[in-house]
């Protein structure tokens, strides 16, 4: 039986009627039309469905929508502000850290969750933070270099 819940996504509260078995990923994509969050494996291995919940990166495919009521959720659609891409998004484009783009939303959100708490991460910290995000195009190096470059001392705007 469907239940009406309130989901807080990118600062906006949405009322959604969900079945208990519906994942947060499905609620985002099908009920709210936020298709930037991707489904890859559906089992928590690939990280395409990564969103930020209360400041922490999580796999939205492994969370029930009904269990997400009261949490603050940020999806890739919530990164740009006033039509301006987030500096990390712009850097991914500028440095060609994106090829097919399927992993990019999850990759960016994992990176953002890291740099929100660790403003100047080391390469190892970056690699560990994105270990749960699989990319089949870039070989990771460009992604890691982009995040590293963007968070190097002097680039404070990234975690604004």
């Amino acid at each position: 039986m469907k239940k009406l819940i309130a989901l807080t996504v990118n600062g906006q509260v949405h009322e959604v009627a969900v079945e208990p078995r519906q994942t947060l990923l499905d609620a985002l994509r099908y009920d709210l039309g936020l298709t930037g969050t991707k489904e890859g494996c559906g089992t928590g291995n690939c990280g395409s469905c990564t969103v930020i919940m209360d400041g922490k990166a999580i796999n939205s495919c492994l969370v029930l929508a009904i269990d997400s009521e009261g949490n603050n959720i940020t999806t890739i659609e919530g990164l740009a502000q006033d039509g301006q891409l987030h500096p990390l998004q712009q850097a991914f484009i500028d440095e060609s850290a994106i090829q097919c783009g399927f992993c990019a939303p999850g990759m960016l959100l994992s990176a953002k969750a890291l740099i929100d708490v660790n403003h100047h991460p080391t390469e190892i910290e970056i690699r560990q933070a994105i270990a749960g995000n699989i990319c089949r195009c870039t070989g990771y190096d460009k992604i890691v270099r982009t995040i590293l470059k963007q968070t190097a001392t002097g680039k404070e705007q990234c975690h604004a």
Binding site: G44, A57, I58, L62, L114, A131
Partner: peptide
């Protein structure tokens, strides 16, 4: 255990 995402949940 798992990834950052898995350890957060």
């Amino acid at each position: 255990i798992g990834s950052v995402q898995v350890r957060n949940r």
